[in-house]
Design a binder for these strands. Structure first.
Lengths: 331, 331
DNA sequence: GTGAAAGCGCTAACAA
DNA sequence: TTGTTAGCGCTTTCAC
């Protein structure tokens, strides 16, 4: 700024003013400064401004995996909602591991974000403490934690799984299996599994057809392998609920390879409303958790909490996932 | 730090030292400081350190879309490679638009990253100038620009498309179509399209079966719609090359819905080696551009350029995409 | 509309 | 091993 000030013949303070909107600077002076900026190739140093203003414009965001269309949609909704107000997401991923989450949260907080968004409601004790004492808005998403740290934009994964089981049972299926990741890591997956068990018991059905398909994120190939295992262990299974549409699609392809008719011999349901579930043949019954809406709503919540928006939103927004019944479960 | 210094009875400078590794501080003093940090819930302020040290630990990264498994894999490889050296990616997406790229690059440079990675080699003139004069290493990835700004980790999208056409022609296909996004936005997609045309002409074949499937990112549903359009316009088509596996999968499902046998009546090839292409029935012929390797190699290049690694890498790494021939093109 | 002084929270450099 | 001084590049505050 000093270089520009010298060049234009003003003080650095005037340059600082000219570079911001809503400040009173002589129009010609401002224009001259704009020009000098271009000529000198000056790029504003926001690290210095951040320190002085004690505002970084960062919103820290942790997601389990960057390579997941559901979370990517959430990040997009969040990003787009924040961008208008000059806020920028500072993204990190945890690999579905709460110890990595702790390390990540600590690292992110050092950057002095103005708010933090974490996926899930399960944290290490130290991570919880860090979040609580950070002195910034905290939003937990994609879950409905029993003891939320701050605000919540999410839904019950267990209840959503229950919806799918209710549907399967209502269409006459009784020997229903669940394919998911190994317990303990992906807490949303674990909740869906718990929701499966609870719903099955509610219907008086056997809830022991549980297949662990590997370490989260469980994907299409593992879904196919798990389906093979399932059909060996329990060949009379007539329906399978998968922890995600990706796993469900893997199951569908395995059935196709094995000559098992879907939905006639086997009903398949997934979770997440991934694009593949809509377009595959037959299309997969699933639940839409509205990932992008989670992001947008989180952005709205944050803007309200940060006093950047007039709307006074309800700061805990429950998302209502939608059951999408498609041909994969309709015989 | 002053609070901690007071509490422990040392100067802030000693606290600063105690909080870093490789500094000489009395073991007991260091321990006392660690404890005071915990008790007071102090979190290091890296914005201040960044300003003082003129080092942020950020590496700016632009990708076209966050919701794309290929780019996500690249980001993961890059992230993991940088993490070990304390560098953190600062991610933004351009929506396949070079004007948005310009705005994003400018915004990212204000954060004073230590290097910048941009996807693609096509930029607005101003964006190019910004990158050139940023005074930090620049790496262009996923492409082989004619006039690179700095370093490159990529491959020729046109040549990769040519490999697929050569394969289709070698299996006897002649009436081959291309489905991609509307020209002008996704430059890698446009390169694949150009590679398709060049390869077809090389084989003396008609290269006019070009279907535009909408604004990038083109996805499964649009791939299916484009396939319907293709079959109306040119029902005698015997093979189709798609700009990505996602589009190709959409095409496959459309053929299934229309009762067109793949590969017997129609060969389908994609691009990117997405998981869906490996597992679907029949699996899709594609090209693997090794997205995660692009990320890892970019990280290695940067570490070398930043003097953080001893290896003196060749700083322009050409990735060699691999042709994966699968059942979707083998009749 | 403009400028001077001070300081955000850290650390490099030097001194002890 | 520890402390003092100065300053990173901005912006707040106050004065003119």
């Amino acid at each position: 700024m000093q270089d520009i000030a010298r060049k234009v013949g003003v003080s650095p303070m005037t340059v600082s003013r000219a570079l911001r909107d809503g400040t009173s600077v002589n129009t010609q002076t401002r224009e001259a400064i704009r020009q000098a900026v271009e000529e000198l190739g000056y790029v504003f140093d926001s690290t210095a401004a951040n320190l002085r203003q004690q505002r970084t414009g960062f919103v820290a965001v942790t997601i389990p995996s960057i390579n997941n269309a559901n979370f990517a949609d959430t990040v997009r909704g969040l990003s787009d909602g924040l961008k208008v107000h000059g806020l920028q997401p500072l993204l990190g991923y945890t690999d579905y591991d709460i110890d990595q989450e702790e390390a990540l949260v600590e690292q992110l907080l050092r950057r002095r974000p103005e708010a933090i968004v974490v996926t899930g409601g399960q944290h290490t004790p130290r991570c919880r403490r860090l979040l609580e004492s950070a002195g910034i808005p905290v939003v937990e998403i994609w879950d409905l934690p029993g003891q939320p740290v701050g605000h919540v934009v999410g839904f019950s994964n267990a209840a959503a799984a229950g919806m799918l089981i209710d549907h399967l049972v209502s269409t006459g299926r009784t020997r229903i299996a669940f394919i998911g990741g190994e317990a303990g890591r992906d807490s949303r997956g674990a909740d869906r599994r718990a929701g499966f068990i609870a719903a099955m018991q509610r219907h008086g059905l056997d809830a022991t057809r549980l297949i662990a398909a590997g370490v989260p994120p469980v994907s299409m190939l593992e879904g196919a392998a798990a389906t093979r295992a399932l059909l060996q262990q329990a060949p009379d299974t007539d329906a399978v609920l998968c922890v995600s549409d990706l796993v469900a699609f893997g199951a569908l392809t395995e059935c196709q390879r094995l000559g098992i008719a879907v939905p006639d011999q086997m009903a398949i349901a997934g979770f997440g409303n991934y694009e593949v579930a809509e377009i595959c043949v037959p299309p997969l019954t699933t639940v839409n958790p509205f990932p992008e809406q989670i992001g947008r709503q989180t952005a709205a919540t944050l803007l309200s909490l940060l006093g950047l928006s007039a709307d006074n939103l309800p700061q805990n927004s429950k998302i209502s996932p939608e059951l999408l019944v498609r041909a994969s479960t309709l015989s």
